[in-house]
Write a protein that binds this DNA or RNA. Structure first.
Length: 571
DNA sequence: AACTCGATTCAA
DNA sequence: GATATTGAATCGAGTT
């Protein structure tokens, strides 16, 4: 019989014997919500011990209003749990899930504003400060955090998942999302191993000796002086695009912006030092000494992951720019002595996802090639891989013009099912309708009055604007089904991997830690002796995730996994 | 002083 | 006339 352990700050119906001193309450229930043991009042910092005990004896699925609020404290105390249900994350999915059972719960969700449309997550106050064990589990004791309410919403959420094939997929999504929240907390706790000395060395190499904050590093200052001379602008601040643009125009360089990739086209003595300046300026401001001081502690970079933070279901992140660790500094991501990094990524995940989604047998056949784009090239582009790739990316992103747009008919002729699916998704979006991922994560509702404003446009400029907006939403829905389903695949991949690593650990093998995740790429920090075993788990998990999602279909989802000492050695 | 916005560059 | 998706983060420059 499946059991659930609900964790909350307090209980309404079971006032504490010693008022004000209990810091949490835990209730074990069955699938119908019936209590299996009396609710347990937890005092002081005893929650980790209580959770560890129940996990060992009952192995329940843990129900939290927010895993992000509760689990980091448990992980810090050395406690891990196998399964969870994150009421908040599930609420966010059900709000827009087209296959959910309509009813009172969904209606209630529909009546309140979607927080996803509110302020970005990083602007909201942090849910919890995992610094002080004593205060760790003392939330304000409002009704909304009460155990009865968490349990009631949990049961409503279970009831909202229909007992159908679609419901099974939705249930998988909800479980995977919650598992993701556990993984996110564990990864933040583990941290990316970061070699500060190596980072400082490469900064010194590129920028010159370290200077106080606010002072321009020596190599940048030298280049700035060159730029001032070459542009005959003695007061130029090259950090100001506006000033730079004016100075360049004055020097007879006809540009309308100062973007690096456009400057590469221009022949002028100033271009080379300018590009050099931009390159190291970016390094200094985004990942320089200040970045290391602020974000690397105890040899670990610990970004916070925001599960489901992107509409498509991808993760967002906060702190240190974890979604954009530049290749320039990846040599500083270095395994501890005796350990190695296992870096794995899913090769050409999104087009393979499209093949599976659309059941396009021709595209599936191309996907049996190790290099999918070469497979497409050989099938319909005369072996021209570059053309095949831009055409495919264009189909998934919604390119209408340029080379990619011109290649679209050719691609559609070869893969009518696949291209037809993304075109259908785009049409849905343009018509103001929504679409859903394979497991059933739906797009948010188009803004109120969106269609109305389309028909009400009077002037020609207004008309053009609403048409552009419609196409924009079409590109969004077109990409949503692919990016969102790819995110589901990645979530299942990690979930499967975590399960196997936990099993290994339970059997006494140190399988190391997941330390980083980025869309279709994972990094593990593992004892060198276990590297090959972990690589095997990574591959096994990918196969398992593919079957978990799609069943047995003729589409391969190969992953590459390499064992390295530092991140720059991976691909 | 704090906030907002555009420009830019980084990532998958 | 042209337009590809999703993000994070920093800076300068203008605003409140």
């Amino acid at each position: 019989m499946q059991q659930f352990a609900v964790v909350a700050t307090h209980s309404i119906s079971q006032p504490e014997p010693e008022a004000g001193s209990a810091t949490a309450v835990v209730q074990l229930v069955d699938a119908g919500g019936t209590a299996l043991i009396p609710p347990m009042q937890v005092y002081g910092d005893q929650l980790p011990a209580v959770v560890a005990e129940l996990e060992a004896t009952h192995r329940p699925r843990w129900v939290f209003d927010s895993v992000h609020a509760w689990y980091p404290g448990l992980v810090a105390a050395g406690v891990r749990i196998e399964r969870a249900h994150d009421v908040g994350l599930v609420r966010a999915i059900l709000r827009n899930a087209p296959y959910a059972v309509p009813g009172e719960y969904l209606s209630a969700l529909g009546r309140e504003p979607d927080p996803a449309n509110a302020a970005p997550a990083h602007l909201l106050p942090p849910a919890r400060v995992p610094e002080n064990q004593g205060e760790l589990f003392s939330e304000p004791k409002d009704r909304s955090g009460a155990l009865e309410n968490v349990l009631a919403e949990f049961l409503a959420q279970r009831a909202a998942v229909p007992d159908t094939q679609r419901g099974a997929k939705l249930g998988l999504l909800l479980a995977a999302e919650s598992a993701g929240a556990l993984i996110a907390a564990e990864m933040t706790h583990a941290g990316v191993p970061w070699d500060v000395a190596e980072h400082h060395r490469l900064l010194h190499e590129a920028l010159g000796p370290q200077v106080p904050a606010g002072v321009r590093p020596p190599r940048m200052e030298e280049l700035a002086a060159q730029l001032r001379t070459l542009l005959d602008a003695p007061a130029l601040n090259p950090d100001s695009p506006a000033e730079l643009l004016k100075a360049m125009n004055r020097a007879g360089i006809a540009v309308s912006n100062t973007r690096a990739w456009e400057l590469t086209e221009i022949k002028h003595p100033v271009i080379e030092p300018l590009l050099a300046y931009k390159k190291i300026a970016r390094l200094a401001t985004a990942n320089g000494y200040a970045w290391v001081d602020r974000w690397v502690h105890g040899g670990r970079f610990r970004p916070e992951y925001i599960v489901g933070g992107v509409v498509t279901g991808r993760w967002a992140s906060h702190g240190g720019g974890a979604l954009q660790i530049p290749h320039q500094v990846r040599s500083a991501v270095r395994a501890d002595p005796g350990k190695v990094l296992v870096v794995a990524d899913a090769a050409q995940l999104e087009p393979r996802i499209l093949a599976a989604l659309s059941r396009d047998t021709a595209l599936a056949a191309a996907a049996t090639a190790r290099d999918l784009y070469q497979g497409i090239a050989d099938a319909g582009f005369g072996g021209d891989r570059a053309h095949a790739k831009v055409a495919m990316l264009g189909a998934m992103y919604g390119a209408t013009s340029g080379e990619s747009g011109r290649l679209m008919p050719q691609l559609k002729a070869t893969y009518p099912q696949a291209v037809g699916l993304v075109e259908w998704a785009a049409a849905q979006g343009e018509a103001g309708a929504g679409v859903a991922t394979f497991l059933g994560r739906g797009t948010p509702q188009a803004p109120e009055g969106w269609l109305k404003s389309r028909s009400r446009a009077s002037t020609e400029a207004e008309q053009r604007a609403v048409e552009a907006e419609g196409r924009s939403r079409g590109r969004f829905t077109r990409n949503f089904i692919v990016q969102g389903t790819a995110a589901e695949w990645a979530l299942c991949w990690m979930g499967e991997l975590r399960r196997r690593m936990n099993a290994g650990r339970a059997a006494g093998v140190d399988t190391g830690e997941l330390v980083f995740f980025l869309h279709d790429e994972i990094m593990l920090h593992v004892p060198a002796a276990q590297a090959q075993a972990v690589v095997d788990l990574v591959h096994e998990s990918a196969r398992s995730a593919s079957e978990l999602l799609f069943g047995k279909i003729p589409v391969d989802f190969p992953v590459t996994a390499v064992v390295v000492d530092s991140y720059d050695q991976a691909k």
